[in-house]
Design a protein around this nucleic acid. Sequence first.
DNA 1: CTGTTAGCGCATTCAA
DNA 2: TTGAATGCGCTAACAG
Lengths: 364, 364
Amino acid sequence: MTSEHSARPTISDVAAEAGVGRSTAARTLGGYGYASEEVRERVLAAAERIGYRANALARSVSTGVSHTLGLIVADLANPFFGGVARGISDASRERGFDTLVLSTHEDLAEEVAATNVLIDKRVDGIIVASAALEAGAAGHIEQARSSGIPVVLVDRAVPGLDIDAVVIDNRAAARDAVAHLVAAGHRRIGFVWGPPLAERPRRRRDLVGVGTGNQWTDGERLQGYLDALDDEGLAFDVELVMVGAKTEENAQAEVARMLELPEPPTALFCTENDAMTGSLRALRNAGSRVGETMSLIGFDDSSWAAVMEPPLSMIEQPTLALGAKAAEVLFATIDAGSRGGAPELHTLETRFIARASVAPPNVN
Amino acid sequence: MTSEHSARPTISDVAAEAGVGRSTAARTLGGYGYASEEVRERVLAAAERIGYRANALARSVSTGVSHTLGLIVADLANPFFGGVARGISDASRERGFDTLVLSTHEDLAEEVAATNVLIDKRVDGIIVASAALEAGAAGHIEQARSSGIPVVLVDRAVPGLDIDAVVIDNRAAARDAVAHLVAAGHRRIGFVWGPPLAERPRRRRDLVGVGTGNQWTDGERLQGYLDALDDEGLAFDVELVMVGAKTEENAQAEVARMLELPEPPTALFCTENDAMTGSLRALRNAGSRVGETMSLIGFDDSSWAAVMEPPLSMIEQPTLALGAKAAEVLFATIDAGSRGGAPELHTLETRFIARASVAPPNVN
DNA sequence: CTGTTAGCGCATTCAA
DNA sequence: TTGAATGCGCTAACAG
């Protein structure tokens, strides 16, 4: 463990090179404490000369601050999380913070492990889109906080967990979207994708609680769908709700099934992009024409949605803004010294983008 | 700076709690050196009891290993980089490494800053999709290496820089795609998007060198386009190459322009998704029908491309694999002790997905 | 097997 | 203003 030839120069090296004491060098290099102008210049020159770069790790051990944030999401390859990550990254970089990003593949055990990694690496704050459905499953989050690490939830608030969260109102967004369909004259509206239902519910009552009481985005969107039916006095039909695996294939299969119903839906509300593409495949196979025999609304606008024929009506989520806001809230907590009043739920606005995929039901 | 009440327990605390010396506790907790079974259990129990978690930062200062990788990309919100990041993240997590991700917005100055941050935080390796066009502009990368940090390039190899790189063969992929169009009978093929050309080239010679000698993806794709024309003995027409800003709007404008030509293109090769959506907008406005009056091939397959009407032929990039491979190469270098033979260029396969957007030119 | 003693690189107090 | 001395939490030779 002797210093190797390619060893990076330390403060001691700079001090020697400049002919001053370690602490003096440390002070000017660290930007704290006093130092005469002359000495300062000498030290800076020496540092430059030997290519000195402060060891941020050693500094962190000493100060207790790492200038690093932790981000835990299900999947970085998902454009939604990519946007959130970018928003966080941009906002934190302005404050000289960097971000350690961990993917959990929607697995709670991996999320717990990720949290421990971040605690071990002494990040100054954590932003997490948790897979925990209830406070009881969020012990790792409580643990991080009790370790003194501020935490902010993003995208998904965990019910019962008193922590700041930055989300969108999935329920309201879904309700509005479905209301749009109803306003266009639709009475039978299919719900594609949603909280994983192992088997087909027998009646509406079976759905109560699925999305209630938690902010799990799927559940919220289902509740919004139900809200809209209630608002408009429409009957709920279990046959119009997708069940089973959340895959594009199953979405396609479920929509195909709905199209075979005695009274098929005249419109579909898709809660994710894969639900939308699966639906489109089923519609194409069945010869159903979007915007004519079938109206469509999807979630998460994409540049592709606008160039579809016809263009698809979509709900746009402010991904960058979600990340930026989460970072802002986190920094506020950090600045406040690990405590800043009662936890708040910050709700960002979604935007409904009306395009030609919604039309009056085709009665032929 | 006295230890606060919520101070996290250290090895000393565990040692005290277990009634053993610090080093003994350290050895069992750190998983190195000897310790009797009895003592080991006592220490582990004590650690568990007081909620001890090792300070990874302190450990890193001591060992010189941070178990952290650095990733530098232009934009995490770009699904391509999101996929690469996910691939790296998954591969490195298996080895107990985490990833610090920095976005540079395609700005070289930001990239230099990002590199310095990673050097300062003592990452064990860096993977970068550099914005540097030549070795001369990659001093920061050389600096990282001379600091003893292994570096692997991903997506873009920097010409003249002797460093391992993991890329796809953009030139060959583009050539193949254009060859497909030629095989279908097309003679006038538009090139949408590409290396930023300030003004319209007057003749083909003006394009020589634009993509040659560097692996800048745009340039490579343009060269592949030219290769295909040569292979097939087709004439090059400057009017069929897009110029100006790389935005969806400009792509739309440029395609609109091409459609007004005396001899408009019968097919378009789009090098990015925004180029494709811009093209589609222009085609729709002009009443041109994809797969009939206009054939199309794009880059970066998406689930959307398959559900377009007609489905679009696309070149698929193995984003996850690019990341995984880059991590693999990086770890090999790390394991080899910062040196492992001559730098290699690892080229991953792209896949051409033939769909209905390519058809024989419509002669009407 | 165990504890003592040094470091790692930087921050910070305090006397000079 | 400066430098010596100590500490942060951990690793790691080294004796016992």
